[in-house]
Structures are given as C-alpha cells and as structure tokens.
Write a protein that binds this DNA or RNA. Structure first.
Lengths: 163, 163, 163, 163
DNA sequence: GATGAATGAGCGTTCATTCAT
DNA sequence: GATGAATGAACGCTCATTCAT
C-alpha cells in the first residue's frame, strides 16, 4: 500500500479515503480491468455470426489483450489464483450477477447442442483457461508466440468445447 | 513455518533439522507429490496402446488423484502459481532434467503428427491445464463431478491437442 | 531492536521509519557520537601551539568525554570491536574520507619528525588506544582515576609516540 | 557448539560431558592459550637483565605470538572484549590469583621507580594494549609489519610506561 | 561415556491500517 | 479531504542446551 500511495503521489492514508481496505482496492481494480476486456470484446463483436465465430473472436481478443498488456495480465493472474478470485468466481456462478457476453454465448451453445454437455465452469476452463496459461508462458519467456501458433491454440480451445 | 511445526506437534526449530529452508521443504513436498502421481500414472500404463489411449490414461489418473487427494491438490495448485512453480517449469522446459512420461508421449505424438504442431508448453496447458482447473472447481464446490462429466472433459482435452 | 524500541517507548516498527536497518541505526549513532567528540576537541583547540600541546589537548578531551559519558563510551567500545568498527577504520585508512583533526596532526608530526616513523594506524593505537582502555578500566571500577593519574597516563601516550 | 563438535569429530552432546557450558569451554580455551603464551615468554626469559630488557622480551614475544598464530589471536581479542574478558580481568586484579611474570615485573618496576606511578591496570594498557591493537591491525591487513616497525612500536610501549 | 534429534525463546524486519494534525 | 508517523503481530530462521537411547 505504501508503494501504491507513493506511485500515486499521495499520502499513505489517502488511499483509505477512497477504498475501505486493500482488498476493496484490489477488487475494484479487477472490476475495472474486466470492464476494459469486455469493452475490447464488444468492439467489433460478430453478434450475428456463428457460435464458433463468436467464440474465436472472444478468445483472440482475450489472448491479444493479455499479451499486449503484460502488467494488467500479471495482476489478472495473481487475482485469479488468490482467495479474491475464488470468491469472485463463486459469486459469478451462484450469485445474482447479471449475465455477461461469454455466459450468454455458452448458454446459447449448450441449448443448441453445439458444445459438449458440461457445466459452465468447465466450459470456461476448457475454452478460456488455456489461453491465460499460454499468455503466462509467453510472459515468462517459455514460448515465442506467432500468429500460426495463436491460431492453432485458439482452435484447440474451440475443439475442446465443441461437440 | 510456525503453523507447520504446531500441526506436526514439534518445536519450531525441529523442521530445520530435516529441511534446510522453508523453500527446501516446499520443493521436497512437491517432488514427493509428483513422484506419487507418476507412480499412479505408471501403474497400469497402457504402454503399447495408441497415443490417445495413453493420453486418456494419464489425464484420468491425474484428475482422479487431484479429486481424491484434495489437500495434496491444493498444495500442487499453490505451488504451480508461485515462483517455485515458475522456476520448476523453467527448469523442466530448458534444463537438463531427464524426460518424464508425459514429455515422451508429447514428443512421440508430435513426431507422428497426431497432435497439433505446438510447443510442448502449450500442449501441456491445453492437455492437462484444464484438468487441474476442473479439479479446483470441484474442490471449491463449484461443480459436482460425475463419471460422464469426467469422460467428456477429458475427451475435450484430447480434442484440444489432437490434429 | 525490540529492547531499543521498548526503552524508547515506541513500537518495534517505528525505529524503521527513521533508520533503514539495525546497522544504519548503529552507524548513525556512531557518527553522531564522533561528531560530538570532535566538537569537544575543536572547542578551545590550541591551533597554534606545539604538536605536543595539541596532542595533549585531544587526548585529555577524549579521555574526559569517555569518563563523563559512560553509556556513550560503552557504545563506542562495542562499536570499535565489532565488524562495524573494522569497516569504519578500513574506510578511514584507505577510503576517500576527508581528513580529520587527529589525522592532520599526525601527518604534520610525521613530516616534522616529531613522532616516531610509524604508520598512522599504529600511531593511533599507541597515542589514543590506551586512553580508551583506561576509560574502560575506570568504567568497570578497576581503577579510580584522579587528575595526577590522568596527567601521567596521557603523558605516557605522548611518550609512546614522540621521537 | 554444533560446529565445534563437528570439527572435533564428536556428537553435539559430548562437549557437555567435558565442559559444563559454552562459557566454561571458552574460559578453559583461554586459560590454555594464556598458559602457552606464558610458556613462550618464560622460554629464554632474561631473568637477570634490566627491567627494560625483560619488558622488551615479553612485549616482543607477545606480539610475535599474536602475529604467528592468527586464529589464537582472534580468539584472544574476542575474549578480551567480551564479558568473559571483563570478569577475567576483574578476577586478576582483585582476586586471589597467584602472580604472574608480568605482574611481578611491574611491581618490581614500580618499587624501583623505573616506571610511572600508575595502577597496574593502566601500566598493562599502556605497555601491552597497543601491541594487541597493532597485531589486530596487522591481521586485518591495515598495516604491513616489518622488523623496524615492530622495534619502534615496542620501544614506544616502553617509553609509555618508563619514567 | 557418547550420541544427535529436539527444543523454543529470540533475532531483525515488514506492512496493512489508524488517527491526530 | 489529505497526511504520514506510528503500530505490533507475524515472518523465516538460529543455536546453546537437554535427555532418551
């Protein structure tokens, strides 16, 4: 928190005027980041194309965002694998949260029997989980991504969920 | 470390008789766990079956282990997403470590052009990453796994990597 | 550090607002103390008197300070015989530190061949070392210093170094 | 203590059969060392020469020992500036300890009014203190001792105490 | 006598949070 | 509203000593 305050050019106590706790700050940053990603997805979202097309659009946009914004991605990763992330997903799955574009897509795909008959949580992990993992490998320098590789990896995610 | 000592019913210093540092303790627990998982995989490993059969055996064994040993799995997850895990994977990918059964399988599958032309790291993430994620969702009570679901999820992982 | 904080009537962490580490605290106390001693020496320093007179002034001021400030002296002793003190003297002997009043005096005395042809380090030990030792003996109650004794001891130190 | 035991090739507990505490071990090592030094001094001690001659013999032997046995000297230094050393000197000054060769020399010198009229403790510090300090400077690499330098330094110590 | 595994108080340091100014 | 000095429980680790074998 001291570092955050310093980088923000404010006093250490000032943060607590705008955020109740460190946790609240983190959750809000995460919300903000999520909003930005969904904005990127919604931009040029092929609303009336096939489910496959829409999935590929989401997947590529997500992966592209993670690769081009390494700091934001690093935060996202840490959030995901922390108690914050667990609480967030629990809320998303069981809570009263309004639907988002990915949830809608999967519900539609399940209805039309285009994807495997699996719970939403699993479809998420099969369809989008590997993308984040791939971005992590890229960020760590374990792999050098190129367009063909991205194409094949995203295609793989689609194969994982489709019937 | 204080908690570990307390739960073990020993003094704080006793741990340091058996493990040089906290890090050494963590790495050794991980090694031990990995060995147990590979033992489980090697047990009844269908050496002479198809690559698909072998992959499915590994995937199911891995998922089964994670589901039936929730504490061990929780440790494995934390390790994976910590600097220890990053160092471990870096070593596995670039280091002089002897090959393991999964690496061998993927190399063979790449050679025979049975799986997509992707780096080992990505094949791992597509093929096994979602399984750990699914186990996590199960452990957190987000999903109730049944045999059909496991079958479909594992099948999805195979679809993700196969050509 | 816990004891220091307690005696200062502050929390354990408070010290670290003013001093980066325990070492920094110790070094700063030492600097402060050294400054006070040099201030005492500079006060009424017989600039234009003989080298002998100037040496005796320094020696008596130093001994007087050590006797009248037993706590400060105790710190000085501990510092001197610790790795901090060794590093400090190494810096003083070989480093780029600006000269101080005692170094200047010894250089002048060497040039004028008034003191024995010995390295600075040895002149220090012969000329001032015993004074600190005498102060220690006094602080420990091993001896009861009186003016005559101080006079003779300081005179002895002068005899040790002069030609 | 663990290191001592290891270097001695015995178990950690074995030390405590022969020495009640770590402190007792240290005190005994010191006694042993002191004995060795006095043996070196007694060897070829010029019993019937002048006090000056005898002092110079002791001083040179002491300095020579410290220079040629750096490990032993390091121990001696640490002992001297520790609570052990303080207790030891208190005992030596006020206790029932039998006289040693240096004490005898100083008593004789005081009687014959050859040395300054100062307490034994101060004579020790003026006469022998700088020698240990010089050995320390040598051990730390602060000075490079040669025969002339040793001669002048020891001479200085004599000048410090003689009338 | 000899062993060495076990102990636990204490070390220097951190950091999210508070509150008087 | 803004500040930043103050807090103190908790961190990983050490080491002189003990005692069952």
């Amino acid at each position: 928190m001291a570092t955050v305050a310093e980088m923000a050019g404010v006093g250490a106590g000032t943060i607590y005027i705008y955020f109740e706790t460190k946790d609240a700050l983190i959750v809000e940053i995460h919300s903000d980041l999520k909003k930005r990603i969904f904005d990127a997805i919604n931009d040029q979202y092929p609303e009336s194309s096939s489910i496959r097309e829409r999935f590929l659009h989401i997947a590529k946009t997500l992966l592209g965002y993670c690769i081009s914004s390494p700091m934001e991605f690093k935060f996202l990763e840490q959030f995901h694998h922390s108690p914050y992330g667990v609480a967030h997903r629990r809320e998303k799955l069981f809570g009263k949260k309004e639907r988002d574009i990915t949830t809608d897509l999967f519900y539609e795909a399940l209805e039309k029997q285009i994807v495997k008959d699996l719970p939403l949580a699993i479809l998420f992990e099969l369809g989008f989980g590997p993308l984040l993992a791939i971005a992590r490998n890229h960020a760590l320098g374990f792999i050098q991504l190129d367009d063909g590789m991205i194409e094949r990896a995203v295609e793989g995610c689609w194969h994982a969920i489709r019937r």
